[in-house]
Design a protein around this nucleic acid. Structure first.
Lengths: 137, 137
DNA sequence: CTAAATGCAAAGCATTTGCAAATAT
DNA sequence: ATATTTGCAAATGCTTTGCATTTAG
C-alpha cells in the first residue's frame, strides 16, 4: 500500500474504493480539478456520483489530508497536503508545476510588515509554458 | 477627480455614478468582496442591482483596472490594480493587509525551477491578527 | 452489528444572461 | 443620436443536502 493510502487511513476516514481511487489519481497527477477528478474516477467506478467527489474532497480538506489551490481564471485544483510549496500555472493550458521556495524567510517578512502572525501561505505564479509559447510562433 | 476615476475613464468604460461609487469604495477600503461592495454601493444607490455589480467588476477585471484576490475559505476580494504586491489575511476576521515583497527575485526563481516564463503572481499569507489573537485569551 | 459512505434527486446559492428602459458621450 | 449601461427577472451552473441503500471495520 502506498504511503498516501496509509496516511488516508490514519486520517480517520473509512477506506472506500472511491477514496482510494481519488488518492491514487492525485498521487499520479499531482493536482486535479473537481471535474477532472470526477472524469478519472468515473472510468474506474462508472456509478460514482459527483456528490461523492465533493463529499470526499471536503472531508479530506477538513482533516488536512488535502489542500485546495485557488487559481485565478481557472478551476481550483486539489492536491495531497505535503508541506509548504508553491505553484506555477500556465495561463494557457492550465498546467501546474510545484516548486520549492524558501517560505520561512517570506513568512517572517510578511509577519513584520503586516503585524499578522503568519501560519501558512499560498503562492501562485502565472505565466506561459514552453509548449504553449511555441504555439504562438 | 481622483486618480482612480481618471484611470477608469482611460479604461474605455463609460463613467456612470455606479462605477464611480465602486471605485471610490475600493479606494477607501482597499479590498472588497462582491457582497460588501454591493452593500456599500446600495447605501448610495438603493436601486443598484447585484447584476450591475457583477457586470462592472467583470468589465473592470477584463480591461485590467481591477484585480481579483482569491482567498481560501473566504470570498474573493477585488482591488484596484496597482502593481505587484502581496496580501496577508486574518483567517478569523478576514482582514486583508497589503505588503510589498520583492517579487522580482521570486519570479526568477519560480521561472528557473518550473521552466515556465512567469508574468505575474498571487501571494497570500494566512494567519491570525492581533485583535483576533487577543480574543483567545 | 452499526456508524459511515454512496448515489440519486432535489435544494441552495452565486453568477450570468436577455431584454426593455434609461443614460453617457 | 447611438451605443452602452442599468435593473429586473429568468436561467445557468456549481456545490450541498436529505435520504434510502450499501458498505467498511
Amino acid at each position: 500500500m502506498t504511503k498516501s493510502i496509509e496516511n488516508l487511513k490514519k486520517s480517520g476516514l473509512k477506506i472506500t474504493p472511491q477514496r482510494v481511487a481519488i488518492v491514487e489519481f492525485l498521487s499520479e497527477y499531482g493536482h486535479l480539478s473537481i471535474s477532472k477528478m470526477y472524469e478519472l474516477v468515473k472510468e474506474k467506478f462508472p456509478s460514482i456520483s459527483l456528490a461523492t467527489i465533493y463529499k470526499n474532497v471536503n472531508a479530506m480538506i477538513d482533516n488536512g489530508f488535502l489542500k485546495e489551490v485557488k487559481i485565478i481564471g481557472q478551476d481550483s485544483r486539489y492536491e495531497l497536503n505535503y508541506g509548504e510549496h508553491s505553484h506555477v500555472v500556465c495561463k494557457e493550458c492550465g498546467k501546474v508545476v510545484d516548486i520549492d521556495i524558501d517560505t520561512q524567510t517570506l513568512f517572517k517578512e510578511a509577519e513584520e510588515k503586516s503585524t499578522i502572525k503568519v501560519e501558512s501561505s499560498s503562492m501562485v505564479f502565472y505565466g506561459i509554458c514552453g509548449e504553449c509559447a511555441k504555439g504562438h510562433l
